[in-house]
């Protein structure tokens, strides 16, 4: 079942085309990773989807209804984790949750219970009465997420929720996202950190310069690109004869030797790992072996011609 979709959506800011005929869909209960460098159009896509800004053209559907800035009712079922930490520093953690819960019409005993449960979920129960100005960056990020969860949304949009935090807090947040999805929440997760998207997303949409350039599971995306397999092996008895034996294996393109270390590059899906191992064992033995698998980074590089590192796309 499709929870949200965008069909042929265009959004311009003056001469800048922030969204260029963007189409994507999100299925119930999945984590959709929206990946792209800064300026790719991810935040604009999210804001259009959340009904914060209108699109110039195209159709945005949410729970089977047309989404636009005036459709206040649809927002009831949605939670938004903003890229910036958007909490009130002069209110305590608990008051922040009471405020945002109240905006969604959660009241009384239910609100008290939801505030307590949400603070427990993000691990901030013991800081309920503290003002977030005194929190660490990671704790503020967790409170930022809690504010979007307090009304129990069934569709959660997370816009780069881990920017600028320590690895421990990042892992905590990623684990929380998995947990939410297991409990049936549909999550749209945007990031420019490949490893995050690779780790948690069921499906990935890659955006660049306002366009969707790829959409699929990690395996599908990797399967679409032409990639070489690289095997790194350290042998006990290196020799020129062994080098020639590696070269003779079908599909091997290049063999590089540095002392006892060999780097063997084959064509995509050549399945040469076992053959290389067998040849090396025949000549005396193997002390170390590794095969480089293609990653999302390779997919991105192939599709855009750019590398994506910490949000900075470099040609």
């Amino acid at each position: 079942m499709i929870v949200a979709s965008m069909v042929d959506v265009v959004k311009r800011y003056g001469k800048l085309q922030a969204l260029d005929h963007v189409s994507l869909s999100i299925r119930k209960g999945e984590i959709l990773g929206l990946l792209g460098p800064n300026g790719a159009g991810k935040t604009t896509a999210i804001r259009v989807l959340a009904g914060l800004i209108g699109a110039d053209s195209g159709e945005i559907m949410l729970r089977g209804e047309r989404q636009d800035v005036n459709n206040i009712r649809l927002k009831q079922h949605m939670g938004l984790v903003t890229q910036e930490v958007t909490i009130f520093e002069e209110l305590t953690a608990e008051e922040n949750l009471r405020f945002f819960g109240g905006l969604y019409g959660v009241k009384g005993e239910l609100l008290r219970r939801r505030v307590k449960e949400t603070l427990e979920f993000v691990g901030l129960s013991e800081y309920a009465k503290k003002e977030p100005g005194k929190f660490s960056g990671g704790m503020q990020r967790r409170l930022n997420i809690a504010c979007a969860l307090v009304h129990s949304p069934d569709f959660l949009i997370m816009d780069e929720p881990t920017v600028g935090i320590d690895p421990q807090s990042r892992n905590y947040i990623l684990e929380s996202v998995r947990c939410l999805a297991q409990n049936g929440t549909t999550v749209l997760y945007t990031s420019h950190y490949m490893e995050e998207v690779q780790a948690i997303a069921d499906r990935i949409v890659i955006m660049d310069q306002g366009r969707v350039i790829a959409d699929g599971t990690l395996e599908e995306l990797i399967g679409r690109i032409q990639h070489e397999e690289t095997i790194r092996i350290t042998v006990t008895n290196p020799s020129s004869a062994l080098t020639e034996s590696f070269r003779a294996i079908q599909g091997v393109k290049t063999v590089t030797q540095k002392g006892a270390d060999y780097t063997i590059v084959s064509g995509a899906s050549s399945g040469n790992l076992n053959r290389v191992l067998a040849v090396a064992q025949q000549s005396g033995g193997v002390s170390n072996m590794a095969a480089d698998k293609p990653t999302l980074e390779d997919v991105f590089l192939t599709l855009t011609g750019k590398k994506l590192r910490d949000g900075e796309a470099s040609a």
Binding site: M78, L80, T82, F88, F100, L103, Y104
Partner: peptide, 14 residues
């Protein structure tokens, strides 16, 4: 300026 208004308008608030 802090962006909190984005989150407020993401809720059913006019």
């Amino acid at each position: 300026v802090s962006g909190t208004i984005v989150r407020i308008f993401a809720a059913p608030v006019t």
